[in-house]
Simulated scan of single mutants.
Amino acid sequence: MRVFRLCGCLFVLWSSLAHAAEPATLPSRDDGVSQRRIAVTIDDLPWQRLNEKAVAGLPDWHARLMAQLRRADVPVVGFVNEGKLEVDGVVQPERVQMLRDWRDAGYELGNHTYGHVDLHEVGLPAFKAEILKGERVLRPLLAERGAVPRWFRHPYLRAGRTPDDRAALAAFLDAHGYRVAPVTVDNGEWVWAFAYANVLARTASSDRDATLDRLRKGYVPYMLNKLDYYERQSQALLGHALPQVWLMHANELNAVAFADLVDGARRRGYRFVSLEEAMRDPAYRRGEEGYNGRFGPSWLHRWAMAEKKPKDFYAGEPSVPKWVMDLAGVDGE
């Protein structure tokens, strides 16, 4: 009897662990068209952290990321920090060419401010100046193909700490032809990417390749678990599967894992759509309402705060494992 009970307990434990390791299977309506839709946005073009450090083999990494994007074959809006086009104040033609590669591949380019500045630190007047400075190359680059920048993404997703500031910024953006690109599937992708870049920079060692492989293989299920979490949040808050907006960055990790991530989302029944299509959902008319804090949470959580949802509404969000944060050299997401 004791052996039978022990086996039963072990089976329950094994089943729990197995389900914990797999993202949940979520319901969707069977009407011939997937109700799960998602738009991809990629920040910090031409390359993440390029203003902080040299990226060894940057042309090769850029080519690998472009190859991943081609393989994935999804609409993308890339958001540019023009400060990363410069070295000692001089625009580098090879970095501008990286943007041309995005444009020529059919991806839309938006404004992410010149220097990736924090609105809550620099204040509204300086932030407006950063937006205009962030289109000095971008606007003529797009004009070569008869286009204009029309999407804006707040660095750190910090959109203003008062309704007045948010309204003033919205009026400024509208006057300059921009729409705000929200984020609903927020995540710690940047932590995984920092860890990956840090391991890449190591002198070759016996465990270097194994650690890179472990990061790549762990990154994809982490991101899919985040996707599942925010779909549940959408259902709980809005009563339907909101067309999501996914946040990622131009970095070495996505240069090796982006297409696998897209494949994983497709296996869950997601259809990849343009940012324009995703934002046709009426929920996006809420804008950034409901959040006056210093950080930059998902728009879904901003709307939940506007409805004064209890603390337990936000429970269950997947987090970056500590071993990844240790490799990234950060204390949290």
Rank of each mutant, 00 (worst) to 15 (best):
E108S: 13
G296N: 02
L247K: 02
H116P: 03
P163V: 11
E130V: 07
L141Q: 02
V117C: 08
E307W: 03
Y219A: 03
D207K: 07
G264A: 09
R158L: 06
P125I: 11
L141H: 04
V185L: 13
F152N: 01
W323A: 04
W303V: 01
P297W: 09
V148T: 15
R64I: 05
D164K: 14
V137F: 09
A181H: 04
A283V: 15
R216G: 07
A167H: 11
K133A: 11
E52R: 13
W192R: 01
D101M: 01
R37P: 00
A56S: 11
Y178G: 00
P318R: 11
S319F: 03
K128A: 13
L275K: 00
P243C: 10
F4L: 13
P23C: 07
C9V: 15
T113M: 03
H112T: 05
P27D: 10
P59W: 07
A257T: 11
A241V: 15
L253G: 00
A201L: 04
R271T: 12
V3R: 15
K322V: 14
V137K: 04
A304V: 06
L253Y: 02
E52C: 10
V90N: 05
N81P: 10
E22M: 15
G160E: 05
P93N: 13
A250R: 02
L10A: 14
G188N: 08
T25V: 15
D174F: 01
A265G: 07
D164S: 13
F152S: 01
K217F: 00
M279Q: 13
A63Q: 12
K308Q: 14
R5C: 12
T41G: 08
S319A: 10
D31M: 05
K322I: 12
N225Y: 02
F4V: 13
Y107D: 06
Y270I: 06
D60W: 09
H116W: 04
F11L: 15
S298T: 05
D263G: 10
D118A: 12
Q97C: 05
S319Q: 14
T113A: 04
P140E: 08
A201I: 04
A18K: 06
G269V: 12
L124T: 06
L138W: 03
R268K: 14
E144T: 11
D30N: 14
P149H: 06
T162H: 11
H112C: 03
N111S: 08
E276V: 05
E189L: 00
A72D: 10
T113I: 06
G106V: 12
V12K: 06
R271G: 04
W47P: 00
R5H: 14
D263R: 11
L169T: 01
L224G: 07
G123T: 13
V324G: 00
R267W: 10
A181W: 01
W190V: 05
L109Y: 01
K309M: 14
Y114Q: 08
P125H: 09
A54S: 14
A193L: 06
A193K: 01
L119Y: 01
E231H: 09
P75Q: 12
F295V: 09
N187H: 08
F194N: 07
V220N: 03
D88R: 15
F258P: 00
L10I: 08
F258G: 00
G57I: 13
V273G: 00
P310F: 12
E121K: 13
A126W: 07
R29N: 05
L17N: 02
D209C: 01
W190I: 03
V220A: 03
R161T: 14
A159R: 09
D73C: 02
G287L: 08
K226V: 10
C9T: 12
F295A: 12
